[in-house]
């Protein structure tokens, strides 16, 4: 079953420049997909189209089997949530708990139920101790965790992370990455789409889509994509370090297996 089906999607802001060109794409339910591409390649536009913040020039989008139209926007938004880049600009509530509750209030969830949901998701993102805190007293990573909690509280089927780690320091980044790993374990039905520049992050996903000038130029697993030397060179992709290491070892005809630096080096010396 596909979570997202896109057929022949076209979009442009102005008539002279097409942002997305005849894009077609299926995303499997429960998968973790990374969307890569340089700034201006159309990644963010694509996510905005997915939730109807923009409407396409032509083409079709179906989310969880529902065709995106004006009258189905609300239904689709119940299934898709987006966590954006800037931690400050998506913190709506006055405190952590108010922010997590914001979407629930919009859905008119009764208060008793809201209290339970808020405390559940606050503890899921490990923010239970900060429930009364105001955003100005939180770190970027903490704010992003709250944003994720606020999004997941709506029990969506698809979570889109739109460069959610780009503005965070290394600590915040690793907090979010390990949170995503946890989600994958505990919510296997959740489809996660992550837009990112960070190749180390992309290496963790099941599948990478590479967008260039509004077209998907690569659609493959991280292993295949990062070991495709021609593609990597053409697109100036900065390889995740582990792939760089394997590539160099390969060149010297040394063994290059393993998923972490520790494993790879161990295997080199074993053989």
């Amino acid at each position: 079953m596909n979570a997202i089906e896109i057929r022949n999607l076209n979009f442009s802001y102005t008539s002279d420049k097409k942002i997305l060109k005849n894009l077609s794409l299926d995303i499997k339910r429960g998968s973790f997909v990374s969307l890569l591409g340089n700034n201006g390649s159309g990644k963010t536009t694509l996510t905005k189209l997915l939730v109807g913040l923009l409407s396409p020039d032509s083409g079709e989008i179906s989310v969880e089997g529902v065709l995106l139209e004006k009258k189905t926007i609300n239904e689709i938004r119940k299934n898709v949530v987006i966590v954006f880049q800037n931690p400050d600009n998506q913190f709506i509530g006055a405190t952590v708990e108010d922010d997590i509750a914001f979407g629930l209030e919009n859905r008119q969830i009764p208060r008793d139920e809201m209290l339970k949901i808020v405390s559940k998701y606050a503890s899921l993102v490990d923010m239970s101790d900060f429930i009364n805190r105001e955003p100005s007293s939180l770190s970027g990573g903490q704010k992003q965790r709250v944003a994720i909690a606020g999004a997941l509280a709506l029990s969506p089927k698809i979570l889109i992370l739109d460069e959610s780690t780009a503005m965070l320091d290394p600590k915040g980044k690793s907090e979010i990455i390990s949170l995503i790993q946890d989600l994958r374990k505990n919510m296997p039905e959740l489809t996660i789409i992550s837009i990112t520049h960070d190749m180390e992050e992309a290496a963790l996903s099941d599948r990478i889509l590479y967008l260039k000038n509004g077209e998907i130029v690569a659609d493959d697993s991280p292993d295949n994509l990062f070991l495709n030397e021609k593609f990597v060179e053409e697109n100036h992709i900065k390889l995740p370090f582990i792939y760089l290491l394997k590539k160099e070892l390969n060149k010297q005809l040394l063994s290059s297996s393993g998923n972490t630096i520790e494993e790879v080096i161990k295997n080199v010396f074993k053989n």
Binding site: N38, N39, Q85, E163, A166, M167, H197, H236, K238
Partner: peptide, 10 residues
């Protein structure tokens, strides 16, 4: 380098 893509970092 905050918020830059790889090309821009280079």
């Amino acid at each position: 380098t905050a918020g830059l893509d790889n090309k821009s970092v280079d």
